[in-house]
């Protein structure tokens, strides 16, 4: 679909806004609907739309397959590591209170970090699935 001008220009116009909305959903998740999962799927959707219009080679330049695959465990590990802050300070696992001096503030921080972990794993997994399906057809 590389040669369709309308698709190319339309996609280029819409792509940054999809990513912006994904980040809005991610960081505004404390106040509005959505969170790491929805934001992750949206940013993966942005990458997939980019690949559909401009081809897998273009996507490989922006988000190389090997890098994306490495991010799949990083998000889950970030989540699990944030949870270790509790046992480290003698509290229970996934207790966020040691993350800051004020309890409420600590829980806010914990939620933010954990959502980032979810975002990384979801976005990377969705993109990896797309890569796995499309690159199999080409070999």
């Amino acid at each position: 679909m590389k040669h369709d001008v309308i698709l190319r220009i339309g996609a280029k116009l819409i792509l940054p806004f999809i990513l912006l909305f994904a980040f809005y959903v991610q960081f505004h998740g404390d106040y509005g609907p959505g969170g790491g999962f929805q934001a992750g799927v949206m940013s993966a959707g942005m990458l997939i739309l980019y690949s559909i219009v401009f081809g897998n080679d273009a996507l490989n330049r922006v988000a190389p397959r090997a890098v994306v695959e490495r991010f799949v465990p990083i998000g889950a590990l970030l989540f699990a590591t944030v949870g270790l802050a509790g046992p480290w300070a003698g509290k229970r696992y996934l207790d966020y209170t040691p993350l800051a001096h004020d309890v409420v503030h600590a829980r806010e921080w914990g939620i933010l970090l954990v959502e980032v972990g979810v975002f990384i794993t979801v976005a990377a997994t969705m993109t990896t699935i797309y890569y796995a399906f499309t690159e199999r057809g080409q070999t």
């Binding site: 998740g29 404390d30 106040y31 509005g32 609907p33 969170g35 790491g36 999962f37 799949v72 465990p73 998000g75 889950a76 989540f79 699990a80 949870g83 996934l94 966020y96 409420v104 503030h105 829980r107 806010e108 914990g110 939620i111 954990v114 959502e115 972990g117 979810v118 794993t121 979801v122 997994t125």
Partner: peptide
């Protein structure tokens, strides 16, 4: 208790973070 006005986010990422950790592991 959590300083987060969105109850869904508070439940998912704080009160029930074990479930969410499990979900993330499932996606992984």
């Amino acid at each position: 208790e959590t300083g987060v006005p969105n109850v869904v986010t508070a439940v998912l990422a704080d009160y029930r973070s074990f479930d969410t950790l499990g979900e993330t592991t499932v996606i992984f």
